[in-house]
Amino acid sequence: MARILLIEDEEMVRYSLRCALEDDGHEVFEASDGDGGVSLFKEMANAPTPADIVITDILMPKKHGYDTISEIKGLSPTVKIIAISGGGGNNFNPKAFRDMSDFLGADHVLSKPFSAKDFLSAVNDCLF
């Protein structure tokens, strides 16, 4: 039963992930881009509802996922972060993605499309 901040620009993806999380009993807060995500995080931190886990997409318009992660990590070093990526593209390097995420402090890395099972399993890992 965690408070999860979900930052994802693709609406349908965001919806489906939210469904899966809620179905699993978690409280989900949504943002559709990096900046939105960061301010929401700050809000949640001020209100006594800080996020336990932040799940963020990497390839997003305006603010890159890596920046988002590093900002959030800067705000709260202890928050758990799961980085998810659409992969593909001509410049995507899965290893680099993993390394970078690790470097930035992400606790989990997932490549879309992942199964609900894998997703929820990763979320549960973050809680313990």
């Binding site: 693709e10 993806v13 659409g86 992969g87 593909g88 879309k112 499309p113």
Partner: peptide, 11 residues
């Protein structure tokens, strides 16, 4: 296309 497709397949 992969990226978009990945996103589309996720839901």
């Amino acid at each position: 296309m992969a990226h978009n497709l990945n996103n589309l397949m996720q839901p």
